[in-house]
């Protein structure tokens, strides 16, 4: 027994050095002021930024729902393909993820700009120009675009476990397409849905690149706020730590909500 435990030793050291210690440090800064005295001011100050927190949660939630709606049929479609085709399609789903995240988001900037490609094309047929960049819609679009594969893959994995004969059995018992989706496909994909929600919502709620590049100044998210505390003008790492802590609690709450279902789904994620 002891010998087996010792195998986990290296990771234990890693965990203490790079996970537990930093957490404690963040906790320490969050509960102290610049002079190092204990205070709850940082946490109470966050109330002032509640609109930013609310915006982050709402935009991330909208993006997650859109991802779910888009990914569900795709996941089903993929899971019904022949094994050889599944591999190719799986690659195509992941292909954008091989491109640098920053580059992908820059690309959207030039697409959505006032003089961007979309507006120019629309201009040719006499439409527009539309204000697309620097809106909350653009932020949601960026989130959906970047995190969609993280929703598709766990859904697809969960659905490959649904044997075709189970769908036929439902048809046989009188279920049309709608009932098959609500009575069989959705309940049987719950582990994948839970994993997908976690994997999209968590990065979306804490992103700062997407909102900065596509949202302009008016769509600040929690991530941007935290960044400002450490790298920006307002330089206040005590407040930044407190914000990180609150964000972490939000993420943990969200995850405790989904992991009840999600255990099975995680294993299949690439």
């Amino acid at each position: 027994m002891l010998q087996k435990k010792s195998l986990a030793g290296p990771y234990l050291v890693w965990m203490v050095a790079f996970i537990i210690a930093p957490l404690l440090i963040v906790g320490y800064f969050a509960l102290t002021d610049a002079a190092g005295n204990f205070t709850l001011d940082n946490l109470t100050t966050i109330g002032r930024y509640s609109t930013v927190f609310a915006r982050s949660l709402i935009l991330a939630a909208i993006a997650t729902v859109i991802c779910l709606v888009l990914a569900f049929p795709v996941g089903y479609f993929l899971s019904r393909l022949r094994a050889s085709k599944q591999h190719i399609m799986q690659m195509l789903v992941m292909l954008p993820m091989w491109m640098n995240f920053l580059l992908r988001t820059y690309a959207w900037m030039s697409l959505l700009e006032k003089n961007g490609i979309i507006n120019r094309v629309l201009g040719l047929i006499g439409l527009g120009p539309f204000d697309m960049i620097n809106t909350s819609g653009a932020v949601v679009l960026g989130m959906v675009y970047n995190y969609l594969p993280y929703m598709i893959l766990p859904l697809y994995t969960a659905m490959t476990k649904i044997d075709h004969s189970i769908i036929e059995a439902a048809q046989d018992l009188g279920a049309g397409m709608g009932k098959i989706v609500t009575r069989v496909l959705i309940p049987m994909s719950v582990p994948g849905i839970a994993t997908g929600i976690t994997m999209v919502f968590v990065p979306a709620v804490s992103t700062f690149i997407i909102s900065r590049m596509l949202g302009g100044g008016s769509n600040l998210l929690i991530g941007d706020l935290i960044e400002l505390q450490f790298l920006g003008n307002s330089y206040n790492y005590n407040l930044g730590s407190a914000m990180s802590l609150v964000l972490m609690v939000i993420v943990l709450l969200c995850m405790s909500f989904t992991t009840d279902f999600g255990e099975e789904g995680v294993e299949g994620v690439v």
Partner: peptide, 16 residues
């Protein structure tokens, strides 16, 4: 199938 008055017992059971 869902409109036919027959029911099927599948080879691999296909239970939910």
């Amino acid at each position: 199938p869902y409109k036919r008055q027959v029911n099927t017992v599948f080879q691999k059971y296909a239970l939910f």
